[in-house]
């Protein structure tokens, strides 16, 4: 049984390939972070090695070893530090030339291949084009555009899209026993990233922190100029500053939607009251300006601007909300 959430079309295609014994020698799964690329890739590896009747059965010795990462014929290569390096590729090439130990295939799974150095990627071309008959190479990457065209043309590409929120909520309820309301919230917040939703369900502090950050944002709106400047100094030293601003950005998006009267599209449904209150006091252009200010701030931070100045500009640009 496939346990991957969503991506039914990709699973169907992979199943057909196994059934027809026409397994592609090189596959590439692309998609946003936490969307399920590595999970699907690992499950496909398990399906190839599975000894059960309906691969991947998830119960046979081979499936369990693949899931645990101890199958001798399934090799996982992850970036070493920030990159996949040429040494890793060279070792892999020799390993791939050897016959499989237990199963019929030697599978190698290279995650985040977009981090491969150009030397590593180029060294891999020959193997990728003509791997030994028993080898299956699976790559994952955030985006096909980040890879060399020569790598791309040698792989069968599966572009995984964000998983629909309903599908994620359903899976959280069925498999993890999450209550409906919590599942809906997580699914909406995940923006289609299944892995994030599961992580947030298993680690409730993620949601608690989000509540805290949103509460701080609301407090800032009623704060005086002086308080805002102090807040800017405090936040500028925060290690996860980009994530916080990213979260605020989704909040302003909701305010904008609320102002425009598109209530059903909002992400932070559990804060509907607060959103409605701000929307009543603000006009559409003001909400848009606030959203843009967070966007600018993120952009400037990426270009190494002084964090405190960026935050000051952003905070002061937000219209004070009459208490």
């Amino acid at each position: 049984m496939w346990t991957t959430i969503g991506h039914e079309w990709a699973i169907a295609a992979l199943e057909r390939a196994i059934a027809a014994r026409r397994v592609p020698h090189a596959l590439l799964f692309t998609g946003p972070a936490h969307v399920g690329k590595t999970h699907l890739a690992r499950e496909f590896a398990a399906a190839l090695q599975c000894e059960g009747a309906a691969p991947p059965c998830g119960e046979c010795e081979a499936c369990r070893r693949v899931q645990k990462g101890t199958h001798p014929d399934v090799r996982l290569v992850e970036p070493e530090g920030d990159h996949i390096k040429i040494g890793q590729i060279r070792n892999l090439q020799y390993e791939l030339s050897l016959s499989p130990v237990q199963g019929a295939w030697r599978v190698c799974l290279l995650t985040d291949f977009h981090t491969a150095t150009p030397e590593a990627a180029n060294a891999f071309l020959k193997t990728l084009e003509e791997p030994p008959a028993h080898a299956v190479i699976i790559l994952t990457a955030l985006d096909a555009g980040l890879l060399l065209p020569t790598i791309l043309s040698r792989c069968q590409v599966f572009a995984l899209r964000p998983v629909p929120a309903r599908r994620i909520a359903q899976a959280l309820m069925e498999r993890w026993g999450a209550p409906e309301e919590r599942a809906e919230t997580l699914a909406r917040l995940s923006a289609g990233a299944v892995g994030w939703a599961i992580y947030a369900w298993e680690h409730p502090e993620v949601l608690a922190e989000r509540q805290e950050r949103l509460r701080e944002l609301e407090a800032l709106l009623t704060a005086s100029r002086g308080e805002r400047l102090q807040a800017a100094e405090r936040y500028s030293k925060h290690p996860a500053l980009n994530e916080i601003i990213g979260l605020w950005q989704t909040w302003w998006r909701d305010v904008l939607l609320e102002c425009a009267g598109c209530e059903d599209l909002i992400t932070h449904a559990d804060h509907h009251e607060a959103l409605r209150r701000i929307a009543r006091l603000w006009s559409l252009p003001a909400a848009e300006a606030a959203l843009r200010s967070t966007e600018n701030a993120l952009d400037q931070l990426e270009h190494n601007a002084n964090a405190r100045l960026v935050l000051e500009v952003m905070f002061l640009s937000w219209q004070p909300l009459a208490a």
């Binding site: 050897l98 016959s99 130990v101």
Partner: peptide
């Protein structure tokens, strides 16, 4: 029989090697 391994057997010792494909 799958031509993927070779075994060398001696009394008390056994060596098994994967084969190079190609």
């Amino acid at each position: 029989s799958a031509r993927n391994q070779v075994f060398f057997r001696m009394p008390e010792v056994e060596l098994i090697s994967q084969l190079v494909e190609g």
